[in-house]
Amino acid sequence: MQPGYKDERVWAVAVSLLLPLLTALYGDPLYLGTRYYLLVAGVAIGLSMLIKAPRMFTLGAALAVAATLAGYGLWALSLTRPEGLLGLGHLLSLPGAAVGLVGGALFARRRRSAAVAAFAAGLLFVLLGFGANQMVVCNTLMWCGPLSAPIHG
């Protein structure tokens, strides 16, 4: 039995609630607040529903958003001195994730992808959009440590 849209959305919400729950229990290493985690995940799920993404795409997109937040959280925890504005890099890279989400949904819908392919498209396109925007942000607007290009003078 393949999961339907309702099951997929339940799993997407469950994946999205995992990080806010962990930050409530152990603290927020990015100093963003629980509302930020909920809002970012909610926008990703809502946007994929709004553009009528194929089945399982929303789960892949929600997992990608959770992965970006978890990656930033682990990065913040690995620093010897906490960076208060590290979350700003995540915030400024979200437009790329949104473009990746829309592009991936259109790609998967146009190809009439199977559920596994739509899941992979949601995951990969959101991560690629986020990563591309991250490289632009880290090399133009702010210093992101190892993600920024070295300065030669």
Rank of each mutant, 00 (worst) to 15 (best):
Gly33Leu: 11
Gly104Pro: 00
Tyr26Leu: 09
Arg109Ala: 04
Ala115Ser: 10
Arg81Lys: 09
Leu92Ser: 11
Phe107Trp: 13
Asn139Ser: 11
Lys52Leu: 07
Phe125Ser: 03
Pro146Tyr: 05
Gly122Arg: 06
Gly4Thr: 04
Val116Thr: 02
Val137Cys: 11
Phe130Ile: 08
Asn133Ser: 09
Cys138Tyr: 08
Leu32Ala: 11
Gly71Asn: 06
Ala149Met: 15
Val99Gln: 09
Gly96Leu: 07
Gly131Asn: 07
Pro146Cys: 03
Leu18Gly: 02
Ile151His: 03
Gln134Ser: 08
Met49Ala: 10
Cys144Ala: 10
Arg111Trp: 14
Leu59Asn: 08
Pro95Ser: 08
Arg55Tyr: 06
Leu85Ser: 10
Gly73Asn: 13
Gly87Tyr: 09
Ser48Met: 13
Gly27Asp: 13
Gly153Ala: 13
Ala70Asp: 02
Val10Asp: 10
Arg111Gly: 07
Leu69Pro: 00
Tyr5Ala: 08
Ala70Trp: 00
Val99Trp: 00
Gly27His: 08
Ala98Tyr: 01
Leu147Phe: 09
Gly71Cys: 00
Ala62Pro: 04
Leu92Lys: 15
Asn133Gly: 04
Leu38Tyr: 05
Pro29Phe: 05
Arg112Gln: 00
Met1Phe: 08
Leu127His: 12
Met56Ile: 09
Val10Gln: 14
Val137Gly: 14
Leu39Thr: 02
Leu123Ser: 12
Ala108Asp: 11
Ala149Thr: 04
Leu92Pro: 09
Lys6Leu: 14
Leu17Gly: 02
Gly96Asp: 09
Ile45Gln: 08
Gly27Met: 06
Leu127Ser: 14
Tyr5Pro: 08
Ala41Tyr: 04
Lys6Arg: 09
Gly27Ala: 10
Val15Ile: 14
Ala41Gln: 07
Thr140Ile: 13
Trp75Ser: 00
Leu123Arg: 00
Leu25Val: 10
Tyr26Cys: 04
Pro150Lys: 07
Ala108Lys: 00
Gln134Glu: 12
Ala97Ile: 07
Val65Phe: 03
Ala41Leu: 05
Lys52Thr: 05
Gly87Gln: 05
Val13Trp: 01
Leu79Pro: 01
Thr34Cys: 13
Ala44Lys: 06
Leu86Thr: 01
Arg110His: 13
Ser93Pro: 02
Val137Ala: 11
Ala120Thr: 01
Trp75Leu: 05
Gly46Asn: 03
Gly129Ala: 11
Ala98Lys: 10
Leu50Cys: 10
Val40Asn: 05
Leu127Gly: 09
Met142Pro: 02
Cys144Ile: 01
Asp28Phe: 05
Leu106Lys: 12
Thr23Trp: 00
Lys6Tyr: 15
Tyr72Trp: 14
Ala115Arg: 13
Cys144Leu: 03
Thr80Trp: 15
Arg35Val: 11
Ala12Asp: 06
Leu86Val: 00
Leu91Asn: 06
Leu127Lys: 02
Gly89Leu: 01
Thr34Asn: 11
Ser113Val: 10
Leu141Asp: 02
Lys52Arg: 14
His152Cys: 04
Tyr72His: 12
Thr34Gln: 09
Phe107Leu: 15
Phe125Tyr: 06
